[in-house]
C-alpha cells in the first residue's frame, strides 16, 4: 500500500510537470498541451516512484524503460527528464527550436533519457515488445512501460503488437492506455470509436486493469498489480481528461495541438500554482 506521503509527493510532482508543460508552451506557440496533461499523473508515478532510472547514466543496462508511443505528448516527458537531471532545465525553453535537443516528438539520439524515436503513431508497443524480448534473453529484470493514446488504438499495428506481447508471454511489459477520449478532431466516440477497450485487450489475452488515470492511489496500485502479474502482459486502461488541470483546455480538442493566448497562459499558470494537499 502506498503511503499518504508518497501519494502527496507524486501528486505534487504531477502538478509541477503540468506547470512545466505550460511554461514550455508559452504564449502563442502551438503544442500538444491536452495529451501532455492527460498523462501527467501516470508519467509522475512512473518516473518518481515505479521506475528505476539513473540520470547520470541514462543507458545503464538494468534501468526500466519508458516509451511514449503517443509521442506528441513529449512535453510532459521532457519536464520529468529535466527535473530528474537528465539534461539542464534551460533546454525546456528551447523545445522544438532549431538545433535544440528537444524535438517535437521523442528523439533518442538528441535527448538523454529518451529510449526510442516514437510519434508515428502505433509503433511504440512493438518497440516495447522488442525491448522486453531482448531484456528477457539477457536475463535482465527491468520492465518496459509504454503509454499509448486511445486515438492511437485505431492503428492496426497496435493490435499486431498486442497479439505478439501475449504470444511471447511478456510479463516484463506494461502498456498504459491514456484514455482521454479525444482525438485531434474531436471525441473518439463520434469520430473513430476505438471502444470498448477492456473486452478488446482482454480478448487478446492481456491482464487488464481499469483505473481513474488521475487518481494517484489507483495508478500506484495498478503498477503494483502489474508487477505481481506473471506469464502475460498487463494493460492499464487509465480513464483521463485531456488537458487535465487547466480549466479551458480540459476536454477541449482545440488544445490537442493548440496555442494559448497571454490570458490563457496566465490563467493556466495560476491554476497550476495551487500546491496540492501536503505539498513538498
Amino acid at each position: 500500500m502506498a503511503t499518504e506521503e508518497l501519494i502527496n509527493h507524486l501528486e505534487e510532482k504531477a502538478r509541477q510537470l503540468r506547470l512545466s508543460v505550460v511554461e514550455m508552451m508559452g504564449i502563442g506557440k502551438v503544442g500538444h498541451l491536452g495529451g501532455s496533461c492527460s498523462c501527467a499523473d501516470i508519467v509522475a508515478a512512473l518516473y518518481y516512484h515505479r521506475m528505476k532510472v539513473d540520470p547520470q547514466n541514462p543507458k545503464k543496462a538494468d534501468r526500466d524503460r519508458f516509451l511514449l508511443s503517443k509521442g506528441h505528448a513529449a512535453l510532459v516527458q521532457y519536464a520529468a527528464l529535466a527535473d530528474l537531471g537528465f539534461f539542464p532545465k534551460e533546454e525546456l525553453q528551447r523545445v522544438k527550436a532549431l538545433g535544440g535537443m528537444l524535438q517535437g516528438h521523442p528523439d533518442m539520439i538528441k535527448t538523454p533519457g529518451v529510449e526510442a524515436n516514437t510519434g508515428s503513431l502505433g509503433q511504440g508497443l512493438s518497440i516495447a515488445n522488442g525491448m522486453a524480448l531482448g531484456l528477457r534473453l539477457d536475463g535482465i529484470e527491468s520492465k518496459v512501460f509504454v503509454i499509448i493514446g486511445d486515438g492511437e488504438l485505431a492503428e492496426g499495428q497496435i493490435w499486431e503488437a498486442a497479439m505478439a506481447s501475449v504470444n511471447f508471454g511478456l510479463d516484463n511489459l506494461v502498456a498504459i492506455v491514456d484514455q482521454n477520449g479525444l482525438q485531434a478532431t474531436g471525441p473518439i466516440i463520434e469520430r473513430f470509436n476505438t471502444n470498448p477497450l477492456t473486452p478488446k485487450w482482454a480478448g487478446f489475452g492481456w491482464h487488464v486493469i481499469e483505473i481513474d488515470g488521475h487518481s494517484m492511489r489507483e495508478i500506484v496500485a495498478a503498477l503494483e498489480e502489474a508487477d505481481a502479474t506473471r506469464g502475460k502482459p498487463t494493460v492499464i486502461i487509465a480513464k483521463t481528461v485531456k488537458g487535465k488541470g487547466i480549466s479551458f483546455a480540459e476536454n477541449n480538442a482545440a488544445f490537442h495541438n493548440g496555442a494559448m493566448t497571454a490570458e490563457q497562459y496566465e490563467l493556466a499558470k495560476r491554476e497550476l500554482s495551487i500546491v496540492a494537499r501536503g505539498g513538498c
Binding site: S126, I127, N129, G130, A132, G134, Q157, E160
Partner: peptide, 25 residues
C-alpha cells in the same frame, strides 16, 4: 531461442526489431 516467428505482420516485426536493437541485439 533467438528466432521469433512474428506472424504475418511485417509492420510489427520491423518495429519490434527496433526494440531488440535497443536491447543490444
Amino acid at each position: 531461442e533467438r528466432y521469433f516467428e512474428m506472424g504475418i505482420a511485417e509492420q510489427n516485426m520491423a518495429a519490434t526489431a527496433a526494440g531488440l536493437s535497443l536491447a543490444d541485439k
